[in-house]
Design a binder for these strands. Sequence first.
DNA 1: GTCGGTCGTAACAATTACTGTTGCGACAGC
DNA 2: GCTGTCGCAACAGTAATTGTTACGACCGAC
Lengths: 144, 144
Amino acid sequence: MSANSRLTIASHALAWIGLYQRQGHEVATSEQIASSANTNPVVIRRLLGDLRRAGLVESRRGVGAGWSLARELGSMTLLDVYEAVEPGPLFAMHRTTPDQECVVGHGIQPAMQRVYDGVEQTLRKELARVTLEDVLQDVLATPR
Amino acid sequence: MSANSRLTIASHALAWIGLYQRQGHEVATSEQIASSANTNPVVIRRLLGDLRRAGLVESRRGVGAGWSLARELGSMTLLDVYEAVEPGPLFAMHRTTPDQECVVGHGIQPAMQRVYDGVEQTLRKELARVTLEDVLQDVLATPR
DNA sequence: GTCGGTCGTAACAATTACTGTTGCGACAGC
DNA sequence: GCTGTCGCAACAGTAATTGTTACGACCGAC
């Protein structure tokens, strides 16, 4: 499918910030999170920027700068994260319009669109059932 | 997401062959299907090749060559097509292993994997509920 | 047995998306 | 002012998808 890792990395960042704050720290830096996720700080800043626009995190600038949660992890679901960082739909239509003179070419897009809409709805419901608190608890419960 | 159109085009091809056979023809050529889907015949042959490997269509070579259904449209679901033409998972993990010394870096992949597995299961169930016969009927019911 | 039409498949180009990287201005506390 | 971080633009590398060309394999018709 050529899947991307944005939902994974964004969830990683949120869990990391949440845990870090529980350990008494005010803000987390993109550099710290990038080190945990083994990627570049700019990648983290890009994703956290999306999450900030969605109201899930806040950023502070200046010297004591960094990121903090805007809400409790228990009130954020993976659907919130998904909608914040995933732009497009799951399945694509034809890249060029099919032959409208052909019965199939004419009716296939509405037909498939109905199916895809239903599938996306179901996927959203599934993602909405998992909070970031659930994820963090699951992370902490992983044996080492 | 960078979604692809394979499920769409493959379904288009199956619906087209099905309808064409109902009109009394034995086989459909990739050139005819490509014309309806407004793409290149090789693209169609590639996808139908996947469907053939999955046992959904058959191909005949030689002069009267072309493609025909291996089963009734009513016995094929979109899940069959999805599994035949979609190689990878929906969501990707980190491209590089996260920091295993970090609690989050260590536990995040198993935690997210569990979620993703559940989501894919649900998606499969949803796709399995729709047969290609349903799709064709929906196509034919589309007003022009 | 040759011919003609189609499949099967490899190879390559064009486009696009994703990720990583560099660079630098903006900001705010010291 | 100085310092550390964000914000953001720009670009490179990689990979996937799709389109295209090319050509051999196949097989029925003649």
